[in-house]
C-alpha cells in the first residue's frame, strides 16, 4: 500500500508542476470591473461564493480547500490576490478541468461581486478606476433577423434607435432548449453594415412542425444584454411517439404481449372450467341424493 501511496504522491507532484500555469490573455488581464467594489458588493459576492465555490475552495483564510489536482487554493492567499481583477474574472468565466466554467451560471455582475468578496480579504488592495460604459449602449440597439434559405444562413442586422448600423458588436445565437439555451456556432462581430451571418446547422431538432425558438443576443459587459427571440421553422421535424407505445412485458397490463394475454387466459379458463365442472357434478350428486 505504501508503494501505491508513493506513486500517487509522485503523480501529484508531477501534475502540480504541469498544472501551475493557467495562462490568461493579456487583454483579459487588463480588464477592469465596471462595478465599484464596496462592502455591499462583497456581501453579495459571499453569498454567491458559498453557493457555487465553497465546496472546492473552502472558506477564505481557513485554507480548507479540497485536495484536488490542480489545487483549488484559498482565495485569501497571495495565489489569488497577486492576480489582476481581469485575470480572476477570466478564470471564473471560462474555467478549466476540474474547475467548472461559470459564464452561464453567474452574470458578469455576479462574477465581479465574487471578486469583490475576494478583495475584502486584502487590506492592501486598491481598486483600479471603474471601467466606463461599454462600447455599445446595448439598451438602444435593435435587431432584425432574416433567414437566407439558399445559403442556410441567418442574417442578423444590428442597429441603434436611429437606424444607424452598429458595427463591431458581438452577437450570439442560441436555440431554446428545455433547460437552457444552446449556443449555435461562436460569437460573431458585426461588419461595417452592422450585419453578421450565422451558418445554421441542418440537424437541430425542432418541434412537431420543425419550429425552433431562436435567441439572438448582443453581448454587453454590464449585463443589460439586448435579446430577441424569433420562431422559425429551421429545425428537423421531431414527432417521436411516447416510450410506452409498444406492447411489452414492462408495459401496463392491457399493453402486454398478445401471446401472453391469450396464453394466460386460455390456460386459466381451460383448467378452471374442469374444476367448475367437477364442483358442479358434486353439487348435482348432493341434490339427487337429497331428492331420493
Amino acid at each position: 500500500m505504501k508503494k501505491y501511496g508513493l506513486l500517487i504522491l509522485l503523480l501529484i507532484i508531477v501534475v502540480r508542476l504541469n498544472a501551475q500555469s493557467w495562462e490568461v490573455p493579456d487583454d483579459k488581464k487588463a480588464k477592469v470591473s465596471p462595478v465599484q467594489f464596496s462592502s455591499e458588493t462583497a456581501k453579495k459576492g459571499e453569498v454567491i461564493f458559498l453557493r457555487n465555490c465553497q465546496s472546492c475552495h473552502g472558506n477564505p483564510t481557513k485554507g480548507n480547500f479540497a485536495n484536488l489536482i490542480p489545487s483549488p487554493g484559498d482565495p485569501a492567499t497571495d495565489k489569488f490576490q497577486k492576480q489582476t481583477d481581469g485575470a480572476l474574472f477570466y478564470k471564473i468565466t471560462t474555467g478549466r478541468s476540474p474547475m467548472p466554467q461559470f459564464k452561464d451560471v453567474l452574470t458578469e455582475e455576479e462574477r465581479w461581486q465574487v471578486i469583490s468578496y475576494f478583495r475584502s480579504f486584502n487590506k492592501n488592495y486598491v481598486q483600479p478606476p471603474v471601467a466606463s460604459a461599454s462600447k455599445v449602449a446595448a439598451k438602444q440597439a435593435a435587431l432584425t433577423v432574416v433567414w437566407e434559405a439558399a445559403s442556410r444562413k441567418l442574417k442578423v442586422t444590428a442597429s441603434d434607435t436611429l437606424k444607424r448600423s452598429l458595427k463591431g458588436v458581438g452577437v450570439l445565437l442560441f436555440v431554446k432548449r428545455y433547460f437552457g439555451n444552446m449556443q449555435i456556432g461562436e460569437e460573431m462581430t458585426t461588419n461595417d453594415s452592422g450585419i453578421v451571418r450565422f451558418d445554421f446547422p441542418k440537424d437541430i431538432p425542432g418541434d412537431k412542425t420543425g419550429n425552433l425558438d431562436l435567441i439572438i443576443r448582443i453581448n454587453s459587459e454590464k449585463g443589460d444584454d439586448v435579446q430577441k427571440t424569433v420562431r422559425l421553422p429551421l429545425g428537423v421535424i421531431v414527432d417521436k411517439p411516447p416510450l410506452t407505445l409498444p406492447r411489452a412485458m414492462w408495459n401496463v397490463v392491457w399493453k402486454s404481449p398478445v401471446w401472453l394475454l391469450l396464453a394466460y387466459f386460455l390456460v386459466v379458463i381451460g383448467v378452471w372450467s374442469f374444476l367448475i365442472y367437477i364442483i358442479y357434478q358434486l353439487v348435482k350428486m348432493k341434490r339427487r341424493a337429497g331428492n331420493v
Binding site: Q101, F102, K103, V105, R177, Y178, F179, G180, V238, K240
Partner: peptide, 18 residues
C-alpha cells in the same frame, strides 16, 4: 440532463447547454 428529442443536455453546474 436534458431531452433526447431536443438532442440537448444542460450541465447542472455550468448551466451550459450542449
Amino acid at each position: 440532463f436534458g431531452d433526447e428529442n431536443e438532442d440537448a443536455v444542460t450541465n447542472g453546474t455550468t448551466k451550459e447547454t450542449v
